[in-house]
């Protein structure tokens, strides 16, 4: 907190003027650094060679300028990169990508809202981390069931109905979301 005056080299040093104490905190730019780290890490897991350079470049742009929404473009890029992954069912790469895209989305959202020069209390991360956990546990389990039990070998004609149903359910959910958004509450 505010320090008392001291005498240095004959001239009294003025007391420092500090903001209120918020406890343990980290700089706001760490959210952008998190986007960069998550983006580079996911790109390293998903793509290689020239495409890795493109992924790193997108991650850098997303971190430096969150307002461009390039972070979600990177998510799409990484999703497209997942098409090139070996189709051998439920793998650690897919698990990491499933978790990483979610974390990238949350970090990118916060990087839009947090002032880079500000201080963020560590406690602010508790609720988002809890929600990531609450969503990831069933989604990972569901993905494991889908990819291991129903389609151990990856894609195939018998997987199309499942994919169609899941996609339709997702689209319906988004339509409902947009409807809820447009309707005054």
């Amino acid at each position: 907190m505010t320090g008392r005056s001291r005498v240095v080299d004959g001239a009294p040093e003025r007391p420092r003027i500090l903001p209120p104490d918020i406890g343990p905190a980290f700089p706001g730019w760490w959210a952008r650094a998190g986007v960069l780290l998550a983006g580079v890490g996911l790109a390293a897991v998903t793509v290689h060679g020239f495409w890795l350079v493109v992924g790193v470049a997108l991650a850098a742009v997303a971190a430096l300028s969150p307002q461009t929404l390039v972070a979600w473009g990177l998510a799409l890029y990484l999703g497209a990169g997942a098409l090139a992954l070996p189709h051998d069912g439920w793998t650690w790469r897919f698990t990491a990508l499933l978790l990483g895209l979610h974390v990238l989305h949350v970090l990118a959202s916060f990087s839009l809202a947090l002032p880079p020069g500000g201080r963020v209390a560590w406690g602010v991360l508790a609720a988002p981390a809890r929600r990531v956990l609450v969503l990831q546990v069933p989604v990972q389990a569901f993905a494991a069931v889908i990819l291991v039990t129903l389609a151990p070998g990856g894609d195939g004609p018998h997987l199309r109905p499942v994919a169609l149903v899941a996609g339709a359910a997702l689209l319906a959910g988004v339509v409902l979301l947009v409807w809820r958004w447009r309707t005054p509450r």
Binding site: L83, L85, L98, L101, V139, D155, A163, G167, L170
Partner: peptide, 14 residues
């Protein structure tokens, strides 16, 4: 590709 749909799932839910 069911894996792509699954990748979309946490984003949509979140």
């Amino acid at each position: 590709r069911a894996d792509l749909v699954l990748l979309a799932l946490p984003l949509a839910l979140s």
